[in-house]
Design a protein around this nucleic acid. Sequence first.
DNA 1: TTGTATGCGTTATCAT
DNA 2: ATGATAACGCATACAA
Lengths: 368, 368
Amino acid sequence: MAPRKKTPAAPSSGTPVSMADLARELGVSMTTISRALSNHYSIGPEMKAKVQKLAKKYNYQPNRLASALRKGKSKLLGIIVPYIEGRFFPSVVHGIETAATKAGYNVIICQSHEDAAQERRNIEALLSAQVAGIMVSLSRTTTSYRHFEEVQNRGLPLVFFDRSMEGEDVNAVVLDDQEGALIATRHLVAQGCRRIAHLAGPQHLTIYKNRYRGYLEGLREAGLPVDEELIVFTDMTQLEGAGAMRNWLALPNPPDAVCSAGDYCALGALQEARRQGVPVPDGVAITGFSNEAFTVISEPSITTIDQRCEEMGQATVRLLLELIESHGTAFAPRQIVLRPELLMRSSSVREAKPAAPAGKRAAKTAAR
Amino acid sequence: MAPRKKTPAAPSSGTPVSMADLARELGVSMTTISRALSNHYSIGPEMKAKVQKLAKKYNYQPNRLASALRKGKSKLLGIIVPYIEGRFFPSVVHGIETAATKAGYNVIICQSHEDAAQERRNIEALLSAQVAGIMVSLSRTTTSYRHFEEVQNRGLPLVFFDRSMEGEDVNAVVLDDQEGALIATRHLVAQGCRRIAHLAGPQHLTIYKNRYRGYLEGLREAGLPVDEELIVFTDMTQLEGAGAMRNWLALPNPPDAVCSAGDYCALGALQEARRQGVPVPDGVAITGFSNEAFTVISEPSITTIDQRCEEMGQATVRLLLELIESHGTAFAPRQIVLRPELLMRSSSVREAKPAAPAGKRAAKTAAR
DNA sequence: TTGTATGCGTTATCAT
DNA sequence: ATGATAACGCATACAA
């Protein structure tokens, strides 16, 4: 008659297949199934084959929730970024996602929207989701770090990237921003520029502070004087870049180069220079910072500093996985510093360069 | 002597606090804790207060894995996108993430890297993670849809966005691409253009097919002839845009406008026109599609079609949550179509327009 | 209003 | 080489 109960769950049954189903079907215990699927040595090859075949037939998907609950460890990683727009964070996240997937992890992304309170809620959500580790790029408004201590106390691996807590007792992957501004400044010096201005960012953010330092170091290295007039602090907007350039061009002795701590600001400066009929780079050379997409599109294209977004993401995952896998055997926190890369483009490369100022570079050691 | 066992777990104990811990501490049952925390009506207000206070004190975070396992439903949503770079997908994901967070869900992001096999693995990973629903934008190379049927069979809510399966039996949120190209073409007509070229994309992709249709509809509407010479099929790269423009400008009767199905391609065309000394928009007017970031930065800025990225993300989540919450009571699949928006910028807006071709628009009904 | 007991799907321990 | 059983943390049917 009508078959009842014996009918195996059809692949289209609606309810996911569990190990118990497979065990019943094969007339073995769940233990055997579990071991066969995780390739345990104690299971015979023919049994393994049978189990795997059946699993494929029913399209068995392990319930990772149950697995994680039992093992106390999930295959999820948490990411908190200030926002996910523009070029930088999507690229880093891309790098993270790629590396994480390769290692068998999935990734939960949260945005803090530059809000410390939201960041705190993100942490709680990730703790609740039982992630195996957390990667954070700090929100601008974060001043208390208690929510991160809670993470540490739980023994949950935590790695900062790009925007990190100060100090040596955290794991972090950051760009050497100072080096970035330094090589940009050096490049401008090599182009023969002698009055190099700086568009600086908000100094309470480490990255901008470091870029400012790199600029100063570059001047010192070349034996150039620091002129307060040529340093403007901005919020790194295109508009402010244009405004600063306008003022500079009105000076009796305007700059012959601008080293900007950000691309948008550099773009504004560039556009203003052209509006005023000052040629770029021959009248004023310009460098940006971040390698935003538009820097190859603007005319002229803008020399800038690449922040190694993909590498940053990958390095962050590598460090996090090390922490996860070395469970318990805590090792000393590490800071990984990535070398920025100078992308020379039209906005700063001059055809005719003056003779290299011999001896200037040699003065570096003495100057420090 | 030394206190043993009675010592409450310090907030920095290392192991997360569970309901059992709270129950022990208060001398009540886990049931009471569970109910108090989920605000069950049967628990007295003073008890609730006590429990909540203790939970706060110990920084209790519910284990969502356990909860989801027990309830059979998690608070996770899965997203699969082809990639997470450029402007479009990050923006949509941003919209999704915002809406999902507001509704108390977290989001797992997977990239298919335009690879159907990877997309299939993504689906499996999300099934394994017991997500409550899945949002997909199809990879270019996806031709079989069996992995999605598996999702449907499990009764798991599934919503496509932007790149959807054909047909009416799927839930999807898409942009009206045809309308987008149509309003772009209309705009060019209104600027007095009469020989309007089209940079078309790969026609096996619905979005490009629809944009092509919109362009044709626009011509028909204005009573303009279709000239095969003025239609070029490309992969939408900047380079191809430049190449197409070069060929067009070499024609005895070159176009006076270009309606491109993508911004990069439009940019290439624009740059080539300027290289050849043809003024934009007065020599040739140009429109793009996608509102890429660089369209406001190029000179002149590029008229383009905004794809309502944020709205698309939000609409996708809304639809998905409806499906999730109407658990079981399946309703008919819905397609939500978003209206694109024309962003008029310098590359197409002419100072002096010829007299509007009276009657042309009225001919629309007759022409179809 | 509160408590007891059970199970979600998996894995680890201990036995055979 | 395989099986029985307990436990992970939570939610709920049922009892009191």
